[in-house]
């Protein structure tokens, strides 16, 4: 537990809401996207914004464990992006 003095949590909640608005726009692109690479771009953007949201949520709930999860999520999402790109390219694994 970390104590933050003089920090207004409601502003952080507003920040989270705006980040989720951005995620919604990316989801629209994932659903609409005419080609497969378009959908992958949308997914990549969603991953980055989710990492940032986890860090903000870690501050709100005053626990470090969310930020550890964010680090692991960053590397796993990177690996998944690479694999999808390789699959689209049609090469051998």
């Amino acid at each position: 537990m970390i104590e933050f003095f003089g920090l207004d949590v409601s502003i952080l909640l507003i920040v989270l809401t705006l980040l989720f608005l951005s995620i919604t726009m990316a989801i629209i692109r994932v659903l609409k996207g005419p080609t497969a690479p378009d959908r992958v771009v949308g997914l990549d953007t969603i991953n980055t914004i989710v990492i940032v949201s986890m860090i903000i949520y870690g501050v709100i709930s005053k626990s470090i464990i969310y930020i550890d999860v964010a680090i692991v999520y960053a590397f796993l999402s990177y690996i998944s992006t690479l694999f999808i790109a390789k699959y689209l390219e049609g090469g051998e694994f």
Binding site: T35, V40, D44, T48, A74, F75, Y78, T81, K86, E89
Partner: peptide, 25 residues
């Protein structure tokens, strides 16, 4: 976490761009 984002984001973008060009977009 910030270092992870800075390292992985441009590399992922590069991979997607190359895949898109090779798949004929």
């Amino acid at each position: 976490a910030l270092a992870a984002i800075l390292l992985t984001n441009p590399t992922g973008a590069h991979a997607i761009a190359r895949a898109a060009h090779r798949s004929g977009v």
